[in-house]
Design a protein around this nucleic acid. Sequence first.
DNA 1: TAGAAAACTAACCAAAAGGATAGTACTAAC
DNA 2: GTTAGTACTATCCTTTTGGTTAGTTTTCTA
Lengths: 120, 120
Amino acid sequence: MEEIIEPMTEERCTKSLSSTEDAIYVLGGKWTLRIMIAILNGHTRFNDIQRRVLGISARVLSAELKKLELNLLIERNVIVDAKPVIVEYNQSEYSKSIRPVIQALSEWGLTHKIKISNSH
Amino acid sequence: MEEIIEPMTEERCTKSLSSTEDAIYVLGGKWTLRIMIAILNGHTRFNDIQRRVLGISARVLSAELKKLELNLLIERNVIVDAKPVIVEYNQSEYSKSIRPVIQALSEWGLTHKIKISNSH
DNA sequence: TAGAAAACTAACCAAAAGGATAGTACTAAC
DNA sequence: GTTAGTACTATCCTTTTGGTTAGTTTTCTA
């Protein structure tokens, strides 16, 4: 089955390019997707996430969580009633939209690992 | 039509995560995909690419091209017969494999731009 | 013969990202 | 009352990344 690939004109490409850059800007950091995946896996609290994402410092985690919240990918909820206040970082409904991106990256990353190890 | 989403076990997730990291490591830089897209658009020579990718310095372009070559995404061909030697950076057959990744990033980036601008 | 263009590389510096360590405010358990 | 846990923030320092400028070699063009 042949896939129909539309020709990439300069114009279509420029649009696609800037969108790609935006996506890379938001998702492309060293920690961003690791944190996202931890949260998607149900690890919602600060120290819990920090324990999951090996090697990350509190300082960096704090900054990343703020960035993810600004990008509407997570929601910060404070449970005031809890005796020591509990802060939860939950996935947003919108965060489901990055699933295909994670999927595509993950699939390519896997084949690439194989490709590179075969080439040596 | 409901999509069937398989549950993400910790184990499946860990595998997926490391692949995702690999992909981000290779493709996630500030310039990498911009250069790739320039080459995919038929700009194959050093100065040509530099003119296309606005803002990049020769030093950074040189380093990125080496990285892309190591990752088998481009091929460096020297045409010795040309009077001043011509160096061409061509897309490899393998580079076609990143199309779905660019596609996914580009689509998400576009919807995200809209999402963010609507939220303000 | 004096530019100019191609394809780089080297040296240096600035900015951004990230790591290490410590500290704060609160509470709960021992 | 001391220790430990939660959820951070602040300070400092190192590493990485990227930008600037200039220089090299070769050859074509005016």
